[in-house]
C-alpha cells in the first residue's frame, strides 16, 4: 500500500515524457520522506518495453478499448486504483487530460485539488497573468495534484519494471464525449513539452519570417513558439502560443526572437530554464527576465546564429 499514486498517460502506445518525469519527481520526494514505494496507474496498451522501472505497483488496464482517452472509463480506472492502493496523494502531469479528469475525480473522491502546481511537494502557481505567485493549502483526506512540467531532465531510474496489477475495464453508464480521432502533429516537438523552444513575436515581421525560427528549432531538436501578437496576426497557430492565454513552456532553453516580453507572455515562461532574448529594442522587458541578451535585428542575427550552431554540431 503506497501513499502516492501517479497517473501515467499514454498516446498511441507511448508513455508521455511528462508522465515519466512526474513519476521520477514523486519517487524522489517519497524516497526523501521515507514514504516509498509509490504506485502508478495506466489506461490503455503501451508498446513493448515502455513500462517504467520503479519499485511499486502499476495498476494497468491494458484493454485496447482504453487506447483512446475516454472520460468515464479513465476516471473509473483511477478511482479503482486509488481505492486498491489506499492512496492519499494522486498526481497528474498537467495537460488536456488532467484538465478533464482531475476536477471530476476531486468531486467523486471528495479530494482537494491542487492544480497547476510547480511540483509534487507543495503547490505554488503563477496567478494574475503571472504577476504574482500563489501558494495553496489543501484540506481533505485525499489530495489530487496536477503538476506542471518544468525545466530540467529527470533521472528515469533503472532496475526492474514495476509490479503490474491488471485492472479490468469497468463499463461506465454514460461514456461522455467519444474520442473519434487523435491527430498528432508530425515534425517539430510540442511547445509545452519541448526541451528547446524558439519563440517569435511581432518583431519577426510576418509568417515568412518564422522559417528562420523553424530552422533553428529543428536544428536544436525543439519547437517553435509564438507570442500572442504573432498568433493574433495570423502568423502562427494558437497551439504554439506561449503565455497566459496560451501554453506554458518547460524548456531548458527558451530563445525569444523579436518578443517584447509583455507580462502575459512572461506568465508562460516562468518555468523555463535559460532564457535568451534577441530584440532590436534594448529596453524591451524581455531582457529583464533573460539570462543572455543580444540587441540586434533577428533577421540578420538568426542566420549567423544558425550558422554558428551548425558549426558546433559538426
Amino acid at each position: 500500500m503506497g501513499r502516492h499514486l501517479v497517473f501515467l498517460e499514454q498516446r498511441e502506445g507511448r508513455l508521455k515524457d511528462a508522465s515519466l518525469d512526474l513519476l521520477s519527481r514523486v519517487r524522489e520526494m517519497a524516497g526523501l520522506r521515507g514514504e516509498g514505494p509509490i504506485a502508478a496507474v495506466l489506461a490503455g496498451p503501451v508498446d513493448e518495453g515502455m513500462l517504467p522501472a520503479a519499485a511499486g505497483t502499476l495498476y494497468h488496464a491494458a484493454d485496447p478499448s482504453l487506447g483512446l482517452y475516454g472520460r468515464e472509463p479513465y476516471a473509473a480506472l483511477v478511482e479503482e486504483a486509488v481505492r486498491r492502493e489506499g492512496a492519499a496523494e494522486v498526481y497528474f502531469a498537467e495537460g488536456a487530460l488532467s484538465a478533464d479528469l482531475a476536477p471530476l475525480l476531486s468531486v467523486r473522491l471528495r479530494a482537494a485539488l491542487l492544480g497547476g502546481c510547480g511540483g509534487p511537494d507543495g503547490c505554488l502557481r503563477p496567478v494574475y497573468s503571472g504577476a504574482a505567485l500563489a501558494g495553496f493549502r489543501p484540506d481533505a483526506e485525499i489530495r489530487i495534484h496536477s503538476v506542471a512540467s518544468s525545466a530540467g531532465r529527470q533521472e528515469r531510474g533503472g532496475g526492474e519494471p514495476m509490479r503490474v496489477v491488471e485492472l479490468p475495464v469497468s463499463a461506465g453508464a454514460d461514456p461522455g464525449p467519444v474520442l473519434r480521432e487523435l491527430v498528432m502533429r508530425v515534425g517539430l516537438a510540442d511547445v509545452g513539452e519541448a526541451r528547446v523552444v524558439v519563440a517569435g513575436g511581432r518583431g519577426v515581421g510576418g509568417a515568412e519570417g518564422f522559417r528562420l525560427l523553424e530552422e533553428l528549432a529543428s536544428l536544436l531538436g525543439g519547437a517553435v513558439g509564438a507570442s500572442r501578437a504573432a498568433v493574433d496576426l495570423g502568423w502562427r497557430p494558437h497551439a504554439e502560443q506561449v503565455g497566459q492565454t496560451g501554453r506554458s513552456v518547460s524548456a531548458d532553453l527558451y530563445i525569444a526572437c523579436g518578443v517584447s516580453g509583455a507580462v502575459q507572455h512572461l506568465a508562460g515562461i516562468a518555468r523555463a530554464g535559460t532564457v535568451v532574448a534577441i530584440n532590436t529594442d534594448p529596453h524591451a522587458p524581455i531582457f529583464a527576465v533573460a539570462d543572455y541578451g543580444f540587441v540586434a535585428d533577428l533577421h540578420t542575427a538568426l542566420p549567423a546564429f544558425i550558422e554558428a550552431v551548425r558549426e558546433l554540431r559538426k
Binding site: A111, R137, A290, F294, A308
Partner: peptide, 29 residues
C-alpha cells in the same frame, strides 16, 4: 477544500548578460 496560503509578487528579474555580436552570444551560451 483548498485555501490561499500565500500571495506574493512574482520575482523574475534575472541578471542579463549582453552579447555584442553573434560570436560572443555563442561563446557565452
Amino acid at each position: 477544500r483548498v485555501s490561499l496560503e500565500s500571495l506574493r509578487p512574482a520575482e523574475r528579474h534575472k541578471e542579463c548578460r549582453m552579447a555584442g555580436d553573434v560570436r560572443e552570444l555563442v561563446r557565452l551560451l
